[in-house]
Amino acid sequence: MQFEQIAQLAVAGAINGSFYALLGVGFGLILGVVGRFHYAYALTFVLAAYIMSVLESSLSVWPPLAAGAGLLAAMALGVALERWVYGPLALSSGALALLTVFISALGITIAGVNLITLMWTAFSRSIYLFEVRPFDVAGVTFTNLDLFIVFASWLLIGLLTVALNFTDLGRSIKAVRGNPFLARIIGLKPDRLYLVVFAIGSFLSGVAGILNGARFAVVPNMGDRPVVFAFVVAFLGGTRSSPLTVGLAGLFIGLVESLSGLWVSPQWSALVVFSVLFIYLSLQPTEISGLRRWLSLGARLRG
C-alpha cells in the first residue's frame, strides 16, 4: 500500500510539476530577457482559457481552432502590454522600471480579471480537448489528459531550448538576454525581440491556461495561484538559465508539493513546499549586492 501511494503521489507530483515547469519557463523568459515583472502573466493565462471555452462551448468551434484563437488572444494581449504599457512605462521610470511595471501589471490584472467576470460571470466554464480516459498502471492512476499535459509541457520546453540554441532568432534572444547593449551594437533590435519574447511567453502561459482549464475548470481567478508558482519556479530555476533548468525547478516543486501528502494532510502542503524552498535558499552561497543589481535587471535593458 505504501509503495503504491508513493508512486501515485509521485505521478501526481510529476503532472503538477510539468505544469509548473511550463508556467515558470514562460514567465522566466520574459523576466530574464525583457526584465519585466509581468504579473499580468495571470491575465494571459486566464484569457486564453476563456476565449477557448467561450468559442468552443457557445459557438461550437472546433476545439483546436478555438485553442488557437485563445492562444492568439493571449499573445496579442502580451505583446500589446509590452508595446503600449510596459515599454513606455519602463522608459519613463528608469531605474525603477522593474517595480513600476509590476504595479502596472498588478492593476491591469485586477482590471482584466474583473472585466472577464463582468462579461462571463464567475460561473465555472469548462474546456473540452478530447475524451478524458483514466488509466491504471499497477495501481497508479492518471488520465490521458494528464499524459498530454506532461507531454505538451516538456515538448514546448524542449522546443524552446532547441530554438534558443539553434536558431538565429533564439541566439539573438540569448544575446539580448546576455547583454542588450552589446546586442544593439551588433545590430540586433532589442525592442522588436522583446515583443517576440512576450509573444512566446504569453503563448506558453496561454497553453498552460488552456491545459489547466481542461484539467480543472475555467474561472476568472484561475490565474492567481499559478502566477505565484510561475514566479517561484522562474526565480528558483534562475532567470538566465536554460528553459530546461527552469523546467526542472518546476518539476521539483511539483514533486515536493505532492509527496508531502505522504506525511501531512493537504492543507499543510504549501507549508512544506515553502519551507523546503526557504531552507534551500538559506543554504545558498552568499552573494552580496543590493537593490542595484536587482533593479539593474530592468535597467540594463534600457538605452
Partner: peptide, 26 residues
Amino acid sequence: ALRLRPEYLVLLTIAVSAIVLAIVGA
C-alpha cells in the same frame, strides 16, 4: 535572507509569507 542575491531575497520573502499564512491558516 540578507546574505542572498536580491532576486532570491524576494523569493525568500514570498516563501516566508506563504509559510506564515499556511501556519496561521492550518
